[in-house]
């Protein structure tokens, strides 16, 4: 979270810093930097600026009086006039709402209800909620998100009930939550799965239940945040799409390449991790896509289609 701010943004950050400077307190620069989201060196520069600010007649008693000593600042006189945090502006309330949308927090979630009280009275939150929506987060996911964010923060193991989309299997796993990664609006958990003692990636919207175990784990020094598989080492299927079929994009079918023939059909080379994954993707084309090779994958697609027909017929 490091940005080079413009003048107005920097002034806004200084206004956010001011209520944190209480007379008689010595505060670590790193603590202030953490609170306003910048580097300690930037905070030191901000504090230096603030030490030049005050109100008329600008005697030493009318100025913000502080001294930076090494990695900390001591406040001798706090700012006149502003002693409490400011309410959120329209832009800030919009940004926070959009970010929480994306984490699955609906407008009526208790956290959002409480944060409404921090917005300026000049902001119409109803209008914001009716006009801006970063609806990356599916409903019902907020509790899972909170559990995993807290566990990743405190390095606590979590027990999850996980639905594997391609097979429909549900498994119980104990994982070490390393990181939360959003890719194109979908949240993933990057974690160590204790059952296999390997890194695994889980879609948050397929985690039915997540409960902290009370046990801690040691995070690795370097956490991978790549959530798409390394397709170079995967087997490759050949899939033919009918003329006019809407082709999948490379994000939904990672590593896939496409070549359209003169008759309008398209041949795709598709790396795949599991037969069940690619079988379901092909089935969803309802006949407009066909696995050409390998033969065992053709058989898997056929069997998956027969199984899918059973509950309907």
């Amino acid at each position: 979270m490091n940005r080079r701010p413009d003048t107005a943004t920097r002034a806004g950050r200084l206004l956010a810093l001011i209520p944190m400077l209480k007379k008689g307190e010595t505060i670590a620069l790193s603590e202030l930097a953490a609170a306003v989201g910048c580097e300690p060196a930037q905070v030191a520069a901000d504090l230096s600026t603030l030490s030049m600010c005050g109100v008329p007649p600008f005697t030493p008693y009318d100025m913000i009086d502080l001294m930076i000593d090494g990695d900390s600042v001591t406040v001798y006189a706090e700012a006149p006039g502003i002693d409490r945090p400011l309410r959120l502006t329209l832009g800030e309330a919009r940004a926070l709402g959009a970010a929480l949308d994306a984490a699955g927090y609906e407008d009526t979630a208790p956290l959002r209800e409480r944060l409404r009280e921090t917005a300026s009275s000049t902001v119409s939150l109803d209008e914001l909620e009716h006009t801006v929506r970063a609806s990356a987060g599916p409903g019902g996911m907020a509790e899972t998100y909170a559990t995993l964010a807290a566990a990743a923060d405190t390095h606590e193991k979590v027990h999850i009930h996980y639905f594997t989309g391609s097979t429909g299997n549900v498994s119980d796993r104990t994982v070490h939550p390393w990181a939360l990664v959003n890719r194109l609006g979908v949240w993933y958990l990057v974690a160590l799965c204790e059952a296999v003692h390997e890194e695994r990636v889980f879609r948050l919207d397929r985690i039915f239940d997540a409960r902290p175990t009370g046990e801690s784990f040691e995070p690795p020094s370097l956490v991978p945040i790549e959530v798409t598989p390394d397709t170079d080492s995967l087997p490759v299927a050949t899939v033919r799409f009918a003329a006019g079929a809407r082709l999948p994009d490379g994000e939904a079918w990672p590593g896939a390449t496409f070549e359209t023939a003169s008759d309008g059909t398209t041949l795709a080379a598709v790396p795949y991790q599991t037969e069940s994954w690619i079988a379901r993707r092909v089935m969803a084309y309802l006949g407009d896509a066909e696995v050409i090779a390998p033969p065992e994958l053709r058989a898997a697609v056929r069997q998956a289609a027969i199984d899918a027909l059973k509950p309907i017929q």
């Binding site: 609170a35 309410r87 800030e92 923060d153």
Partner: peptide, 20 residues
């Protein structure tokens, strides 16, 4: 920018926290 400013006002910004 506004998100950074919002979490700064709420005092929840900064280094540390969950990796995301």
């Amino acid at each position: 920018d506004e998100l950074l400013s919002a979490v700064s006002k709420l005092g929840t910004s900064g280094t540390g926290g969950p990796l995301a």
